[in-house]
Write a protein that binds this DNA or RNA. Sequence first.
DNA 1: CAGGCGTGGAC
DNA 2: TGTCCAAGCCT
Length: 370
Amino acid sequence: MTETAPFPWSDKKIAAFRETLLTWYDQNKRDLPWRRDHKPYHVLVSETMLQQTQVQTVIPYYEAFLTQFPTVQALADAPQAQVMKAWEGLGYYSRARHLQEAAQQVVRDYAGNFPTTAVELQTLQGIGPYTAGAIASIAFNEVAPAIDGNAFRVFARLFCIEDDIAKPQTRAVFDCVIRRVIDPARPGDFNQAIMDLGSTYMRASDPDAEHSPVAAFDASFQSGRVLDFPVKTKKPRPVPIAYLALAIHSPAGWLFMQRPQTGMLGDLWMFPLIAEDELEETLAPARLQEAAQQFGAEAGTTLTLSDPGLRPVTHTFTHQKWTMTIVQAETDEFSLATLPARWVPEPELASLALPTVQKKLLRRMQLLKE
DNA sequence: CAGGCGTGGAC
DNA sequence: TGTCCAAGCCT
């Protein structure tokens, strides 16, 4: 479809689509925790967790998060470490930091009452065009599209839209189409119905377009090209990276470092890592000494290597594949340098926000169950 | 704009 | 094991 082509659906067809979609939704919508009410704070928390994350994964995190931080005020006032801990294992950790920042913005700039328009909502940290549209439509009945992966896929199929959804500029094409079709009487339900459709009959893999309630409106189905849509360029495969993970133990516990706020696994705690390409060969004791000195150990500190036999741990991220060789060492406690580092006794491991990759290391060392 | 940013499930 | 995917946002 080009920008100059006339809109392919008549007003009558648009009305029929809305009726069909919403009738199906009213009878078949999933019973999800965040559909119990339409409070903007609840919508914000759920939509943030749902970014690039499946419903099944989010449900327990959502329940626990709202128990711990029941109001936007409570989240704004909470210690940041507590928020990161609540996010542990969910991934994309900047979402947690941004979510709390947004709560603080609402408290500080809006006296605790959420702004009610998509345009204003987008000024809050972590809220982009999708989440703003979702909150505005669901909580405040604004006629605003909420264009996520489901909406891209559903409308690409309904209209056989060939534009590459991986390109940012494509959003405008879909925004234009959806504004034509969205039901102005029930924008929030319309957006959620599209998502339910996109996760059932019109899912990415193994779709069931034949039995879809909107099969009659589905141009890709009518032309036998369901799997040709949406058009989306593929992402590069993960780059392999080899690390040594330094598991340094003293009577005070294990040496952990807090990762920088920006970048991967920001604010979370891990063993110090050394990229293997920074090393000549395997880790000589002298190199371990050198590394320990960076954390504050004096030159004479004795480090005894232990348990060299652990198999490496692998962990794949979206864009990197890590292989980590664990180097365990025993030492006397030394005072840590200015780095964001701590000695962590084993009972306190549970109170730190640890990424899954760190938990894998601990499991391999049998310091964590499972 | 392109690329960075996690994790778990499905196949 | 590899590959792709899932209710995106930030820089």
